[in-house]
């Protein structure tokens, strides 16, 4: 049943995948992200963030307050590479 429970809608990562990884010792959001691409889609981890942290907390016996928050980086939405290049060129001029 966990196979049909979606934690990350952007990359279709299931609860089963997340739990299996935690069981394998991947106990931070960023590690799970590197393996599954969770949090790297259009929503940038806004939907799955707290769900994943709660799973890590429950399965490792920690308080959610003590779980490391995911690393956030720009950009928060998709930006076309051409636009970034164009803006970057302005610095050269």
């Amino acid at each position: 049943m966990n196979e049909n429970t979606i934690i990350c809608r952007c990359s279709d990562v299931t609860l089963k995948q997340v739990r299996d990884l935690i069981n394998d010792g991947y106990v931070t959001y960023d590690e799970i992200k590197r393996i599954t691409r969770i949090g790297m889609g259009p929503c940038q981890g806004k939907t799955c963030g707290q769900l994943v942290m709660r799973e890590i907390a429950n399965m490792t016996g920690q308080n959610i307050k003590d779980i490391k928050f995911q690393t956030t980086r720009p950009p928060v939405v998709g930006v076309k590479l051409g636009l970034i290049a164009k803006e970057g060129k302005k610095d050269e001029e």
Binding site: M1, T5, I6, L51, K80, L83, I84, E87
Partner: peptide, 30 residues
């Protein structure tokens, strides 16, 4: 929009981006 990307420099910033809805994990939640 999706058309113009630019840089801003500001003396101070107030971030007032609000909140977003939490989701719930259950089978077939997609």
């Amino acid at each position: 929009k999706e058309d113009d990307f630019f840089k801003i420099s500001a003396k101070a910033v107030v971030v007032a981006t609000g909140a977003f809805e939490k989701s719930l994990a259950f089978p077939n939640n997609d």
